[in-house]
Amino acid sequence: MDIFIDQFFNIDIMRKSLPLLFKGLWMTLQLCSAVILLGLIGGLFVALGNMSERRWLRWISIGYTDLFRALPPLVLLIFIYAGLPFAGINISPFAAVVIAFLLNNSSYYAEVYRAGLISVAKGQWEAAESTGLSPAQTLIHVVLPQAVRNVLPDLLSNTVEVVKLTSLASVISLSELLYNAGMARSVTYNASPLVLAALFYLVLLWPLVRLVSHFQRRLAA
């Protein structure tokens, strides 16, 4: 029992690895912000393309969402990080991670937005446009708020997935939370930093997961 506690819950080692883990956490948060923010914006445009009356635009965005949902994110990441240099394109690990996960995530966000947009009655568009609002104004002020409210749990769930996804970045040695925890582990020969990292993820994601359940229940009511 003592060995177990010593190996997994060694307070002393946890305290010592704290600075490294915080650094990793900071990187994870930066990654998440970039991927989530760009994903939310990009996903909306892809969804609009998906629903466009122009056929070529529809095809491009449907191809995009199909492709990047089918490709495993890790494959995408390694391809971008290790493959692109062969084409003479060198990018930082951070950029590689953001691009890879953005392609993957904006596709998922796009599908969620699309479900939200079609859940808003056609009459809302017509009423708004009949009062002289442009299509963009109608989207921003009338349709999007309703669409987002209708799919808020799914948008949040997807966001939870993004946070989890960023831990894959450790594969290309980007010093995010999991990578740094692994470093601390190999230096101390002790698993406690990993436990601490798991705790960090939990603290980060548990409120979000709660929120998803809350909204799901509210929408069902």
Binding site: A121, G123, Q124, E126, A127, A128, S130, T131, G132, L133, S134, Q137, H141, V142, P145, Q146, R149
Partner: peptide, 28 residues
């Protein structure tokens, strides 16, 4: 050209006042 629909189509996420001011603010 004002138009009134069978199904009203008020904006459910806005108060009555906001429903009536939206186009005034954004279009006019």
């Amino acid at each position: 050209i004002g138009m009134v629909f069978q199904g009203f189509h008020l904006y459910p996420h806005m108060s009555v006042l906001k429903n009536v001011t939206l186009a005034q603010r954004k279009a006019l």
